[in-house]
Amino acid sequence: MFELTAQNLLADWAGQFLDPRKRLFWGYLGSAFLIALIWMVLLGRERPVSACRKLLARDLWCSASARADYAVFLINTILMGSIVPRLLGHAAVAVFCFSLLHDLFDGRASLLPDAPAWAIAAGFTLVLFVVDDLARYVVHRLMHAVPLLWAFHKVHHSATRLNPLTVLRTHPVEGILFVLRGALVQGLCIGIFVYGFGDRVSLVMVLGANAFKFVFNALGANLRHSEVPIRYWSWLENFLLSPAQHQIHHSENPRHHDRNFGVVLACWDRLFGTYCHSEPNQELRYGLGPAVADPHSLYTLYLLPFREGVGFLHRIFIRRWRRQLTPPLVPTDQYQSNRAIYEID
């Protein structure tokens, strides 16, 4: 059980930058910086010093939007530290799934008994990565499509400047959904694979992180939340979403709304009709526009979503309730006929 102590908090804050399983690991930040620098120098014809200045610009890293990102990161660690241990965990889902399969198939399966352990490990790592990516797409799309969920996901889209820490600009309610999503996806995959393949299942790891995630992160995942519009070749963007494509997802322009929900693979967006290529020399404005007056205040980031969510529920349920209480109007012709029957004058 996580205990809310200063030591734990410091460890978790620091862990974000020291743990290779986290997106903000210093190594990934460093590789993202290098990739951005090379891209700006080679393709943007910037001088290295100028490129560095742009990447480390004070008006970006000290902007109101960035300061809000930092505040959310610090506050969420405290809040989630108290909430996460009380949520449904990976182990509960995995054991449930593992047990259920014993009942469904009367005992333990031993699939592909001659397959080498490395092949099972590679298969498990790949399946976990793909299913997790699909689950992220589905949940992300729901966060946009369902007004109640959008009230909370808007917090992430309220960032008007993008930096790698924007990835943690998340309302705690949305954070809880992410934890549950992770427990469900990873628990199911682990339960099914261990049931079928036993102790041959393991995770292919690099520096303690899922190998696929390591590659994704090392190749500049942090640039998705940056203002460096790195594009891939058009053919490659059909398979892997580029940073520029995710920046389009954050665009204030209505033309870009509800596009590119995916994280790594582009196939989900292509399959479900939400795909959008990046554009050359794209210059985007980020955020929610003038509809939100003060997008970086703690009130907007933490309390407004509840207010909007309650308002949404109120509209839905109160209207429905009122409709049920109000007697339906009697059609005129039936009214006339009633008058005749009861001889009302």
């Binding site: 978790d12 996460v84 054991v95 990835v167 600009r169 992410f178 682990i190 261990v194 102790d199 299942v201």
Partner: peptide, 21 residues
């Protein structure tokens, strides 16, 4: 009997952070 499940979960790591998409 569920040690393999727990070992895998351990290897995935627990995160209190809320990485968005």
């Amino acid at each position: 009997a569920t040690a393999e499940l727990e070992n895998l979960i351990e290897s995935l790591g627990e995160s209190l952070a809320t990485e968005n998409d």
